[in-house]
Design a protein around this nucleic acid. Structure first.
Lengths: 140, 140
DNA sequence: CGGTATCCACGAAGATACTG
DNA sequence: CAGTATCTTCGTGGATACCG
């Protein structure tokens, strides 16, 4: 499962007791990746790029509800981190394609797993939420 | 004309790949899980609970920078979704322990994979970011 | 100890208009 | 087509004080 060179959990204290603590570095890693893909649009964009290069306007059309501003901003951020590449063709009309880099692709599989988990468990989650909300309403 | 506005949805490219265009419910799944663990603290809490039940005050101490308010709020959200369980012991002084449920544990492994990815690639990502920022500064 | 309640600042993000 | 610029709203989260 985790055959990466760096095992995050290795840095977390595994005391027999109930007190495992995050090394600051671990928290930073989490924060870093969350900043990258924890927002509203990044994962959606990455998923849309899964099959190959996609044009700006196609992204705007295929991602429901995204504004031009957020699309541009999020693409810029993904590009900055090296997850997404941009190719502009000097044509008329102009054509710009965005595609996953190798780095982006490597993230895709993990992210897809998360999506699969969510799809798999979402009924269970919703049930819990409803039950919780009902119980809370009772005690109000 | 390869793609008019009318047939956008019909012209979905269904390659055998992971996902072509987002069906609305796929986007909803992503959104759901991102709402759950995409925030600043959820993953950190889940990770801290990895080894077993942890008391409220221990969570507050072991998660650097978290405020009491956010700890309470995030725990409530995780509890609502069935990822975390709460047990209050009628003692003096009072003791309350939080622990991952089976659902929470099943998420943990996926999330840990994401953290491992981040730990593994974070140098590469930072390099890209620096290069990008430098290039941007040049064109300014 | 294990929380709630309230106030406030700040950044994220939507709407809209404009440009190369 | 592929963006940028600006304005404004809105939610998230920090600080602080208080309660069972």
């Amino acid at each position: 499962m985790r055959q990466g060179r760096t095992d995050v959990r290795a840095d977390v204290r595994r005391t027999p007791g109930p007190c495992a603590r995050w090394a600051d570095r671990d928290a930073d890693f989490i924060r870093e990746i969350l900043d990258l893909v924890g927002d509203k649009w990044s994962v959606l964009i990455i998923g849309t790029l899964a099959d190959g290069p996609v044009r700006y306007s196609d992204l705007a059309r295929d991602i429901p509800g995204i504004s031009q501003r957020m699309l541009t901003l999020t693409l810029k951020q993904l590009r900055r981190s090296g997850l997404v590449g941009r190719t502009a063709y000097a044509e008329v009309p102009p054509r710009v394609e965005y595609a996953l880099t190798a780095l982006g692709t490597s993230l895709l599989s993990t992210v897809l797993e998360l999506a699969a988990w969510s799809a798999d468990r979402h009924a269970e989650i919703r049930d819990h939420q409803r039950a919780y909300d009902t119980a809370a309403a009772d005690t109000d």
